[in-house]
């Protein structure tokens, strides 16, 4: 039984198609990782799902109910953690929670109890009466998450909740997410950090240019490209000429340059390792070469031709 059922979702901004016939199901109780390069349409998808803006065609069902007709009822049970820190800077941590709790219809003793529990849950109880301006980056992020939890949503949407924070705070947040999931919350999670997905997600969806281009568990996705290997080559001068020559090799699927390192994704046992070596030698000194089995990051690379953190969405 799916908590979310999206069918043929199309969203255009003037002539530009941002979501192109998206079909997506999210099962009860899972953590679904949503990956995609910049401008893939992740945030648009999330906003459509959260009912923030409409879409041009298609249908969304959440909790088994048609979205448009039951919008407010559905929204009441969804939590959205925004990519930006969207807190009222002139309200204390506690008041922020009281506000968002109130907007979701909580009041009185119940609201008070929930606020205390939520603060405890994200580890901000001691800072309840402080303004967010006095918080560190990690604390702001945690409060940002807390504001989406105070009404205990059944379905939580998290749009890059860990952007730009220290590893310790990140671990704390990831632990929080795991706990929530164990308590039965279904979570949709987008991030730029592939490790997070590997740690958390039970299933991964990869988007590019408004399409879903892969959908499955991490193992399934990696299996898809198990007939490929990644050759990492470090040379003195990675010229365009060299890249061009490598691209022309039989069985080579992707060639990407990362400073002095060249990443080549190629078919397994194609003998390309030797060929790469000899070509590289023509272009001068080789510092190192290695061949590896693919990871989730390579899946992403192979499918989108882009590196996850290229240019980073951390604007």
């Amino acid at each position: 039984m799916a908590i979310v059922h999206m069918k043929d979702i199309v969203k255009r901004y003037s002539s530009h198609i941002v979501l192109d016939n998206i079909d997506l199901d999210i099962a009860y109780g899972e953590i679904l990782g949503l990956l995609g390069p910049n401008g893939a349409g992740k945030t648009t998808l999330i906003h459509a799902l959260a009912g923030i803006h409409g879409f041009d065609s298609g249908a969304i069902e959440v909790f088994g109910k048609e979205q448009k007709a039951n919008l407010l009822e559905i929204k009441r049970q969804i939590g959205l953690v925004t990519q930006e820190i969207t807190l009222f800077t002139d309200l204390t941590a506690k008041e922020n929670l009281a506000f968002f709790g109130g907007v979701y219809g909580l009041k009185g003793e119940k609201l008070k109890k929930r606020i205390d529990e939520t603060l405890e849950f994200v580890g901000l109880s001691e800072h309840a009466r402080k303004l967010p301006a006095k918080f560190s980056g990690g604390m702001k992020r945690r409060l940002n998450i807390a504001c989406a939890l105070v009404h205990r949503p059944k379905f939580l949407i998290m749009d890059e909740p860990t952007v730009g924070i220290d590893p310790q705070s990140r671990n704390h947040i990831l632990e929080t997410i795991r706990q929530l999931n164990q308590q039965g919350t279904t979570i949709l999670y987008t991030t730029h950090y592939i490790e997070e997905i590997q740690n958390l997600a039970s299933r991964v969806v990869i988007m590019d240019q408004g399409h879903i281009i892969a959908n499955g568990t991490i193992d399934e996705l990696v299996k898809k490209i198990q007939y490929e290997e990644k050759i990492k080559l470090e040379v003195a001068a990675p010229t365009d000429d060299l890249l061009e020559r490598l691209r022309k090799l039989d069985g080579v699927k992707q060639v990407l340059k990362n400073e002095k390192e060249i990443h080549i994704i190629s078919q397994v046992e194609s003998g390309n390792l030797d060929r790469v070596l000899s070509i590289a030698r023509e272009f001068g000194g080789i510092h190192s070469i290695s061949a590896e089995k693919p990871t989730l990051e390579d899946v992403f690379l192979t499918l989108t031709g882009k590196r996850l953190r290229d240019g980073g969405e951390e604007e």
Binding site: I52, L72, K75, T82, T86, T89, V103
Partner: peptide, 14 residues
């Protein structure tokens, strides 16, 4: 401007 309105539009308030 600080996008709290975005958050509000995800909440059950028109």
């Amino acid at each position: 401007t600080n996008k709290t309105l975005l958050r509000l539009s995800a909440s059950p308030i028109s």
